[in-house]
Amino acid sequence: MAEVLDVSALDADGRKALERLILSLADSKRLMGIRYSDWLLGAPSIETGIATSSMAQDEWGHARLVYAMLKELDIDPVAVEHDRAPQEYASIGALDEEMPDWAALVAAMVLVDGALTTALASFAEGTLESARGRVPKMLAEEEFHASLGAAWYRRLARSEGDARRLLVAATEAMLPDVLAWLGADDAPARAMVEAGVIGPADDLLADFRARVRDIVALADIDVDAATAADAWDEARGRTPGHPDEHAVERVRGDKNRALFVE
């Protein structure tokens, strides 16, 4: 087991890099939960809707736990959760828009949730003590997400007509964002690798490709041939763009807080 990171010993760039990593993971978890929640009532069966609801709750719980890691940097997670504009979100670009159909949500289950799990598995083995303690339970819960995603992906990929076509389109649309996010190799990403907080980009990409290779091959997609998006926003550690305003209103809980009675 690697030694524990002394967060107080990080320089300004190191602190900024850790903040970016935590925000990137937590924002992606929060948005993933929103995208699952969009399908609570539209899933193909009651059981699938219940599973989607459960996964949304898992993601929001995971996000809350990851946001709380910001305290180690003396950043108030409550303000971060509730006061940011969409342009400040560091979530994976593939989650920016509402999933237009069930096939797109299935692709996100496999690719986006899969990429998050890949990153978190590495984060859990790194030097940040809070990640070692909190992330393993998340990974156990994610096993159910992976099972459901793989089962639905197989089913849609083997179908004929629209379902398969939509699945292929969603997979091809999401992969560049996901590969860019997971394969980030800029200065902040390298600082985190050097500090032992997370593994190198090449390792993360190799793990992710191994995880999804056989699944997406069912849709005749070669994950080894897929390429990452070129454009990059180093400040947030994601591709340019941001989640839609409506999703962020829900992420922040604006409506809930409007009902608060002090």
């Binding site: 059981e47 599973a51 609801s53 459960s54 996964m55 099972s147 793989a150 089962a151 639905w152």
Partner: peptide, 19 residues
């Protein structure tokens, strides 16, 4: 009981439905 496509999905549906 749950309806499911296969054993793997049945496990997920059971765990999330009867929680």
């Amino acid at each position: 009981y749950v309806d499911a496509m296969d054993d793997e999905t049945a496990k997920v549906h059971a765990w999330t439905t009867y929680d």
